[in-house]
Write a protein that binds this DNA or RNA. Structure first.
Length: 267
DNA sequence: ATGCCTCTAAAGTAGAGA
């Protein structure tokens, strides 16, 4: 099975590239983040022509996640149980969860496509929301893990180590690298989830995100913030994993590159 | 070379991303 995850930064703006990439890469399952479109506007017919079923969760302008599969798409779950919304923590009343999580069972594998809150700044209510969201995610995945093989893919908006940012000194005091955020990842690993670290196509760092500005991609000033967290029975089947930095090149790319993971069949 | 930001809409500028 070939599994992939990609923050596309608008599925509408990226649709020609997405379709070309699907045809060339042929993943069995693809997790998408930042689709930035309502579920009813998701280009299900277009991906359907390539043989993919689609499940989408959307808010409209912001966020948005989806799962595409050509090996079955069952038990679709929009948001995870206990997922917080932003407004509750900001004290402005109860809020629905944002469109940051969608789960589906694809060919016997439980798959989550996740888009973690950015956090903005450590003194922002958005940062507290980010940590609360991760704590709730931990509980939701803990509840599902006994049921079978599981993979939680997506844009975690956390760089797991200092080696996962191009210049750690520039990130002192910033989000994405704080001990609190890294502890949230450690709590997920403590459940038995394994960080499937992909191989970079170029250079020593498996970065998955490069800012659009100032030629960051061309200088390989990136971050590894897109992650594949796999249960033990899945991580043991990983034959290979890579960051497809080719998809970050050229005109009109997303600012993130896809991660592609090849799994051996269940023996 | 891979090339200096881009997306959406409550749009003609602003907010968000990280």
């Amino acid at each position: 099975m070939r599994l992939a995850t990609w923050n596309v930064n608008s599925v509408k703006a990226r649709l020609p590239r997405l379709l070309d990439w699907l045809a060339a890469t042929e993943p069995d399952v693809l997790c998408l983040q930042e689709t930035k479109c309502p579920a009813e506007a998701f280009p299900a017919a277009e991906v359907g022509e390539l043989g993919y079923a689609a499940a989408a969760h959307g808010d409209g302008r912001w966020n948005g996640v989806a799962v595409l599969s050509r090996v079955g798409l069952d038990e679709v779950t929009l948001s995870f149980p206990g997922e917080p919304g932003f407004g509750e923590l900001a004290g402005v009343g109860a809020a629905r969860p944002e469109a940051r999580a969608i789960g589906a069972t694809c060919g016997g594998l439980r798959v989550w496509s996740l888009y973690a809150p950015n956090g903005r700044a450590v003194d922002s209510p958005h940062f507290a929301y980010k940590l609360e969201w991760f704590a709730a995610l931990r509980d939701a995945l803990a509840a599902e893990l006994p049921s079978g093989p599981l993979v939680a893919c997506g844009d975690y908006n956390v760089a797991p180590t200092d080696a996962d940012v191009w210049d750690p000194a520039l990130f002192v005091g910033a989000t994405h690298v704080t001990p609190a955020e890294r502890d949230a990842l450690a709590a997920l690993r403590a459940l038995g989830l394994h960080d499937v670290v992909p191989t970079p196509m170029k250079g020593p760092h498996p970065f998955t995100y490069w800012d659009y500005r100032a030629g960051m991609f061309h200088q390989n000033k990136g971050m590894r913030i897109d992650l594949v967290y796999a249960s033990g029975d899945v991580s043991g089947r990983v034959r290979s994993a890579y960051v497809d930095r080719e998809a970050r090149k050229g005109k009109g790319p997303s600012d993130h590159a896809p991660i592609v993971v090849d799994l051996d069949p269940i023996s």
